[in-house]
């Protein structure tokens, strides 16, 4: 697991005089599940926008899927997948139409889209839902489908922004099993969440505070270093210094 798919060195992003990302440096490896945590306003969204080719760094080196975030953001976009809780699929299109749309956006050939659609629906045991509108599906099914669509084009990395908010415990576990399966196939999974128990599912976790990465290690390593029983305790100590 030594191939780097994200390599960030001294990333700085400023908005006017405000430093949103203050010299971030980290690497993420092929097939890794990487948790990206931080308080509201810590600078996570800014960093993710840069990593996904939507915004340029002010300075520093950022290589994602082998491409430079300064010069090749369009190449980055083609080689990543993205899913967030708030928006993922078009509610007024059917399951198949959504898959066709996303496959088309990623420039996949029609035959390939058809093959992957069949495969995807079988794997999720979704065959009967193919022609149903997204709006008519329960939340849990939508989330699982959205994740499958985000990796339809076999990207090198998939970014998940609070993917399991509000789903029931069984669906949440099925979702994490899909994440494990995807990572085992060699796709890197980059996850943000406010919920610290989710962090414990990750291979490694970084915690941001005020634009800086304050900690980065395996969940077990972080708990040991901060002598804490959970990642939640570690997080609170980092993001609320002095009070604990």
């Amino acid at each position: 697991m030594n191939e780097k798919v994200i390599s960030v060195h001294n990333l700085v992003k400023k908005f006017g005089s405000f430093v949103a990302n203050d010299h971030l440096s980290f690497d993420v490896y092929k097939g890794e599940i990487f948790g990206f945590l931080g308080a509201n306003g810590a600078g996570k969204t800014t960093a993710i926008r840069i990593l996904s080719g939507l915004s340029r760094p002010t300075s520093g080196e950022v290589i994602v899927a082998g491409y430079d975030a300064h010069k090749q953001p369009e190449q980055i976009k083609k080689n990543i997948g993205y899913m967030c809780q708030k928006f993922s699929l078009y509610e007024d299109l059917t399951v198949k139409e959504n898959i066709m749309l996303y496959g088309g956006i990623y420039g996949m050939k029609k035959q390939l889209i058809r093959d992957r659609t069949k495969n995807l629906l079988e794997r999720l045991r979704f065959e009967e839902y193919g022609d149903r509108l997204i709006a008519s599906l329960p939340l849990g099914l939508k989330q699982k489908l959205a994740f499958s669509v985000a990796v339809l084009h076999e990207p090198k990395i998939v970014f998940l922004d609070e993917p399991t908010g509000g789903v029931d415990p069984i669906t949440r576990r099925q979702f994490w099993e899909m994440i494990y399966e995807t990572a085992a196939r060699g796709i890197t999974v980059f996850v943000t969440t406010h919920y610290m128990d989710e962090a414990e599912y990750c291979d490694r976790v970084s915690i941001m505070n005020e634009g800086k990465i304050e900690a980065l290690d395996t969940p077990a390593g972080l708990k040991q270093k901060y002598q804490a029983g959970s990642i939640e305790e570690v997080f609170i100590r980092i993001a609320r210094p002095g009070k604990n």
Binding site: G38, A39, N40, E162, G165, G166, H194, Y195, M196, E232, F235, I236, A239, R240
Partner: peptide, 10 residues
């Protein structure tokens, strides 16, 4: 507490 970070939730 939905969508609020762990520090604010605590």
């Amino acid at each position: 507490t939905t969508g609020v970070d762990a520090v604010s939730r605590a």
